[in-house]
């Protein structure tokens, strides 16, 4: 039996678990020939031969101004890291613009695929208790069974960003 015949034999019987020992199979064949001929079809194919193209409007690249960046950073409490992040943000907005011309008059927003099912509400009663220790275990700072946070009501300190063309790196001016 040639290696190839052996492989075929093993493949056909794999579900019955014949022993595939390492000794007579030193080098496996990775690009095995399939018994199916993928070039040959019996019926006219239902798969379109050429790509089916759909056109979406080409929109100008959005430009996000500095006050908007600052607003987003304040709302999200994350920092826009660098120029690349800004350009990803802008191109994501451009990407989103593509659907604005799709006709959706009288089409309601689809919030959940389970809209035909009423949301289940459980009884407002304790099912699992005494988990204080477990829950506090995840916190880095605790005091007498409380989570601890620093003083509130202090606005975030924000810095101006300069991602303009002539700034070589992410320069931040205080």
């Amino acid at each position: 039996m040639t290696t190839f015949e052996m492989l075929r034999f093993l493949r056909n019987t794999r579900l019955y678990c014949t022993s595939v020992s390492g000794t007579n199979r030193t080098k496996p064949v990775t690009t095995k020939e399939s018994k199916l001929n993928f070039k040959k079809l019996k019926y006219p194919t239902k798969v379109p031969i050429n790509p089916v193209l759909q056109n979406f409007p080409i929109v100008d690249k959005s430009v996000i101004d500095n006050p908007t960046i600052q607003l987003l950073e304040r709302l999200a409490l994350v920092n826009l890291e660098n120029k690349e992040a800004l350009s990803t943000l802008e191109s994501s907005i451009e990407f989103a613009e593509k659907i604005t011309l799709i006709e959706t008059t009288n089409v309601l927003p689809f919030y959940t695929v389970l809209e035909d099912q009423t949301l289940y509400l459980r009884e407002d009663s304790v099912t699992e208790g005494n988990s204080r220790e477990n829950i506090l275990r995840g916190a880095k700072v605790t005091e007498e069974d409380y989570f601890v946070s620093p003083p509130g009501n202090i606005p975030l300190q924000q810095k101006d960003k300069d991602f303009s063309e002539n700034s070589t790196e992410c320069k931040e001016n205080a």
Binding site: L72, V78, N79, E84, S92, P150, G152, I154
Partner: peptide, 27 residues
């Protein structure tokens, strides 16, 4: 401050992909 702690925690904990998606979503 609380906001400063949140902002710094998130700046250190998330990668650029996560941060950019959060900012875009907020937009």
């Amino acid at each position: 401050s609380t906001e400063e702690l949140y902002a710094n925690t998130r700046a250190e904990g998330f990668n650029t992909v996560v941060k950019t998606r959060i900012l875009t979503g907020n937009y």
